[in-house]
Write a protein that binds this DNA or RNA. Structure first.
Lengths: 202, 202, 202, 202
DNA sequence: GATGAATGAGCGTTCATTCAT
DNA sequence: AATGAATGAACGCTCATTCAT
């Protein structure tokens, strides 16, 4: 009977939602398992039926939230491509990045939660559920293919862009230093274009 | 009599050394004050005569280690400038960065310790003790002045370079992913040159 | 199932009994939560499931012990009233006081514990559980009503009597100074009669 | 050389003053020896040259402050006797008590500090330094002698009065309950007169 | 005599984990 | 499957006391 499976899924989701709220409000170090369970209307012991410890729940959440952000960015990219056909490959990348930055800017809590916990290893393996479980590299590959351009060391290229975006936005959005987000964007996107050019063949 | 002052200095250094060892071995979250003291051959209470808590000792250490690295890089830059007079401004920056990367590469433990705790706020305020307490921006300014070039938004420029170096090296050195450090360097330095060019006036 | 509730009640009582023993033996300041728990054959953490801190347990105990004493005194008063109908109002008060003093005299440990912690605020609010939660003033009022006498400022009157009894007995019972309890009683009861007379109307 | 003796006396007084300030501000339990010393501009170790622990300093202070209050009351009594010759013995006692109450009412901090720590044993042994080290009983005896009256069990009589005053004033002044100090005074003084009468011979 | 660095036992409190129900 | 009472190790922190200077 699927009813039991459904109930278990609901419990797990309740724990994830509860933990996300507490982690972003008070930080993972100041959140106890007991609190996560109580905030999800469960007994402490029940937590252990679903997760080994709070770090297991954290890993789940980081991947889940990152997935949501990329999914949304991808949808928006498709919308833009549909409207303005002239967009170049570089514009598409910038569009993706911009959409991600906007989401982080509007929700700094998620930025703080994700940024410090999202290593390249996790990031590069994120599967985007609504896109047949493609990961980020797949999406890039697709865009590249459409553009008829050729690049060397595509993974390194993406890695450098992702890290540059992540690191600079973290500071600028959370500390408004050394410049505001709009000021950053101009030069950040110029730098991204330079990096893309640097890796392009011929 | 300075004997007592000397003894206090030694105790403080012993605590710093002990904490550095434990922080890098097991992480600050898994290190207790009690352990730091015991590892420094002291009673627990003695810790509190020198530091408020373990985060105070962490701040000390991050600044101290970062200072050491930049100091060494600056010395090496001067050596190189002394030998090959033809070095351009861009080459000087790359030289500095390369020297920092080499130190981190040889001592990944320090990289792990510093990188996650060195925000731009702390970084941009680090005073290099052996250079009349100049900070990093002062050093850049000096190099720029020698080069007779002009740049807009120098702070943003340095910020972007520092974050790009920091974030990419962290992954590459600690996880050897997505490429090795030598592979990274080539494209990283090319990207840095692009960024410098992007900010140059005329 | 009530079994679990019963077990919790037993744990709480064990903690109260343990704390009472230690408080009266060594004073509350020299008793640690750790000791209270160990003396009740529990782990330290269990204490916190039942009480916020040791002062919460103290408040419980003071009220509980004071309640027991007044309850017993009230019962004895009723016995005496039943036997000798002629007792006047003044005699009834003295009877109550005498019964309280006798209990304290037989159990100085309780006197030491209660007296220093029983402010008028707490005292005047003690509900006597076996008497439909009447408090002390209610009992006095009842006696007054039976006597057909009238008094002004009844609360002040009771306050003065209670404080006089409490303060003098504390010293006499615990230090046998400046006189013995029997010597005190004679003049104490005379003084109480004077005070009652002083507040009587007409 | 008396200079050294003088210096020691000053140190001791500084410690007493420091402790009095801290005890009345934060309570003895929340005051550490370290604080007492620092607040007296001394090193921690110096404390131990003058007092065994903080309770030794407390005993000193209670006696000292009580002494000051009685001294002042006695002076005022003599002033009043000098002016109005008709004052009876009872009036003299009331005058003394009233003066003590007024001091406590104006300085509740001292009341709180003294009242809970002043047992009859300490009280009855207080020597009033400015009166050839007479104690309280001596003063009473003197007043009695002047009055040509005779009393039985003088110590018990004084004890009852002192305890009644102490206990009722403590509550009324510190908690304004169950009545205000002026309301208390009227009936308190009437009660004292009753007690005096009760002990008078013939 | 005076200092204050050093000690370490002891405190209150938290919390991951277990397990009988 | 779900519970939550119980545990006890470990934490940060305080402070009376000692003692070399």
């Amino acid at each position: 009977m699927g009813k039991i499976e459904e109930k278990k899924r609901q419990k797990k989701e309740a724990l994830l939602a509860s933990a996300f709220q507490l982690f972003t409000e008070k930080g993972i170090d100041n959140t106890s398992i007991s609190e996560i369970a109580k905030n999800a209307n469960m007994a402490k012991g029940t937590f252990y039926l679903y997760f080994k410890d709070k770090y297991a729940i954290q890993d789940c959440l980081v991947a889940y939230e990152a997935n949501r952000i990329f999914e949304k960015a991808h949808i928006q990219l498709n919308n833009e491509l549909f409207q303005k056909v002239s967009d170049s490959f570089e514009d598409a990348i910038i569009c993706l990045v911009d959409c991600v930055i906007e989401q982080l800017n509007e929700n700094p809590v998620i930025l703080r939660f994700i940024a410090k916990n999202l290593s390249w290893g996790i990031f590069s393996n994120i599967r985007i559920s609504d896109l047949d479980n493609q990961n980020c590299m797949d999406i890039f590959d697709e865009l590249i293919q459409k553009s008829k351009k050729k690049f060397r060391q595509k993974e390194l290229m993406v890695f450098m862009i992702v890290e540059l975006v992540n690191a600079t936005c973290y500071n600028v959005i959370l500390n408004h230093s050394p410049v505001g987000i709009e000021d950053l964007k101009k030069d950040l996107y110029a730098a991204i274009r330079s990096i893309l050019e640097q890796f392009e063949l011929q």
